[in-house]
Design a protein around this nucleic acid. Structure first.
Lengths: 140, 140
DNA sequence: TAAGATTACATCGTGAGCGATTGAATAACC
DNA sequence: GGTTATTCAATCGCTCACGATGTAATCTTA
């Protein structure tokens, strides 16, 4: 395995490890990690279209549409066609979706503690990973 | 989104970005990224059991078994019960699986170039990510 | 050595991800 | 204005990831 391959595996296995920490925290809320990400995105900007959500989360409609339908079935979001442009679908939080934000802080704190590093170190690592990601995106 | 959540998303999106770089390189070989990881593990140590592969790749049999069956169907590996312990299954490379290693070097070089950083920087980042991962595993 | 515990792998169901394609709405162009 | 191109979401098929469970082999222990 070359160093290049090893960094890929490091990302791959770290992402899995992270989701394994999130899972028991999100399970009581009936959420998966990608669903949680959708909520986080909507807490920051409610009423985004599917396309805008996709740009935020770097996912496409073939992933988001079924995921959003499940969240709609759970009563967390609504999906409505935009009147001015019937191609687009606006995703909005329900009261239940809004209310979940109260629980999110505790989860984030648990995650931070599980990381076991100081905040500034975590932020620096995050920026390096994002830098790598963005170079990979332009290279692709 | 708190900084803790953001590092999770950084890992999540960087992993996807990485796999999107690998995909067009692996597609001509008929491989997915997890299948490539299995080959890499076997190139380093052929004849591992499913359990050993799982510890290497941090995956369990419910993920590996179907994946290995697909690779067996493609003629890349063989799966045989261990005579001394019939519970275990030994996974071995076929000639075709061995031969693919020749193509892997070129792929790794492409990945390294797509990362757009010097090797020592990449190694340092890798070690930080692995450190984070291992702390998450013990925390969970 | 017989009974119960443990281990290793497999199976099943569900939820991502994504390439390829479709369908409908809008935009662009002649 | 009508034709063509583009855009947005949805659908389909496949693979991965994993919790829960099943099954057979092995180990433990009395």
């Amino acid at each position: 395995m070359t160093p290049a391959d090893r960094i890929c595996f490091a990302l791959y296995s770290a992402t899995h490890a992270m989701q394994r920490v999130y899972q028991p925290l999100l399970a009581p809320l009936g959420l998966t990690y990608p669903q949680f990400l959708v909520l986080v995105a909507l807490w920051e900007a409610d009423g985004q279209t599917v396309g805008a959500l996709g740009r935020t989360l770097m996912l496409e409609s073939n992933t988001l549409t079924p995921l959003l339908k499940r969240m709609e079935a759970q009563g967390l979001v609504t999906r409505t066609r935009v009147a001015e442009d019937e191609r687009q679908v606006r995703v909005a939080l329900t009261d239940a979706g809004q209310a979940m934000q109260a629980q999110a802080d505790g989860i984030s704190r648990c995650i931070f503690e599980a990381c076991g590093v100081e905040m500034d170190e975590l932020v620096a690592l995050r920026d390096q990973i994002i830098g790598l990601r963005d170079r990979l995106l332009t290279a692709g």
